[in-house]
């Protein structure tokens, strides 16, 4: 077990897979990090440092700096995937997905279906998402609810460096388009990571990070750590929380959620996207539909408000679900009478 940062888990997994399979190629804006600058390639590094060293190891044929055109990146990834490569395309900010949505939504996600299963589309689209960096309304959004609702895409939202390792490898080796959402605020988080060169975490396999029998808390990404903090605080009061890290929102590990709610009878979903038509709403509806008989209180989703992400630090802090807000929601559900 090595200890490494979330961002290093990204880059090391890509490097290992590129070394293992020559069909794996990377493309994105400024992923070489310094091309055309006085210092030359790699002088500066990509803005997230999630491609550091790849150019030096694998060269310009396999690590491709693209023009600033998200649509072109996704279109190129789609073509590469159709012609037998395994592209890993980087979208610098998940917020930019709108520009490239046709390539993702109508092309990548539909190929296998529309060609009657005669083609594969093994593309990975990595993107940095999430608030907490004062990056304002166009560079801070969580977009998973848009992508999760699109048939044909698999959507991965890793929380820990180890999950990055296991899930990114699964994504690269998967024959379908996979959206790989990396939270900006987690890039610097350190954790133990498996050394196994074939370490893979299957999709649709949630991780239980705290075990308890009184309330089920479902989340993923940055907010999962907040949920764990709440669970640890309540455990001291004798209140047990099952904290479920979804890992993938599509496919969804319905079984783990329902198994848990059938024991606890109470559900909180903590979601970084605004509330309407959100992952939180989706899971609350799932539980209301399939675990109604087990419920002791109405399921509750904790989301930011239905507004753009604010720029001001104070407002952005107020916008995001916090430990206090999650704790208040848990107590509200526990006190339902």
């Amino acid at each position: 077990m090595a200890k490494m940062m979330y961002r290093d888990a990204v880059v090391s997994t890509i490097a290992e897979e590129m070394a293992r399979d020559e069909n794996v190629v990377c493309l994105g804006e400024d992923i070489v990090g310094g091309m055309g600058t006085p210092g030359g390639p790699e002088a500066i590094g990509g803005i997230w440092s999630t491609s550091t060293g790849l150019f030096g190891k694998f060269g310009a044929d396999r690590v491709i700096d693209t023009p600033i055109s998200e649509s072109a990146i996704m279109g190129a990834a789609a073509g590469l995937a159709l012609s037998g490569k395994r592209p890993i395309a980087e979208l610098m900010f998940a917020d930019f997905i709108g520009v490239s949505l046709d390539q993702i939504w109508n092309q990548l996600a539909k190929f296998r279906y529309m060609f009657g299963g005669k083609t594969k589309c093994p593309a990975v689209i990595r993107m940095a998402y999430g608030a907490g960096y004062n990056a304002a309304a166009q560079h801070s959004q969580a977009v998973h609810q848009i992508l999760t609702g699109m048939p044909g895409l698999k959507v991965v939202m890793p929380t820990t460096p180890d999950d990055v390792k296991g899930l990114l490898r699964t994504a690269i080796r998967d024959d379908d388009p996979v959206i790989f959402l990396e939270h900006k605020a987690l890039y610097g988080v350190k954790g133990e990571v498996s050394d196994d060169p074939d370490y893979m975490i299957p999709f649709g396999h949630a991780r239980l990070s705290r075990a308890g029998q009184d309330v089920t808390i479902v989340s993923t990404g940055l907010l999962l750590g907040f949920c764990e903090a709440v669970a640890d605080k309540l455990a001291a009061e004798g209140i047990g929380c099952d904290v479920i890290d979804l890992r993938t929102t599509s496919p969804l590990d319905e079984e783990t959620i329902l198994d848990s709610v059938e024991v606890t009878g109470r559900l909180i979903v903590v979601d970084e996207a605004p509330p309407r038509c959100s992952l939180g709403a989706d899971i609350c509806a799932l539980v209301a539909e399939k675990a109604f008989a087990s419920l002791k209180a109405p399921p509750l989703s904790v989301n930011p408000p239905h507004t753009p992400v604010p720029f001001a630090r104070e407002l952005e802090t107020a916008y995001l679900p916090s430990v206090d807000k999650i704790e208040a929601a848990v107590r509200k559900v526990l006190s339902y009478r």
């Binding site: 075990a211 455990a235 209140i239 848990s260 006190s335 009478r337």
Partner: peptide
């Protein structure tokens, strides 16, 4: 209502070699 809770439960770590639900 008077609060009565069941408390925490045993957390069994995920094992990569066996793909099983937490329960």
């Amino acid at each position: 209502r008077a609060a009565s809770f069941k408390g925490t439960a045993q957390l069994v770590a995920d094992t990569p070699e066996a793909f099983a639900s937490p329960l």
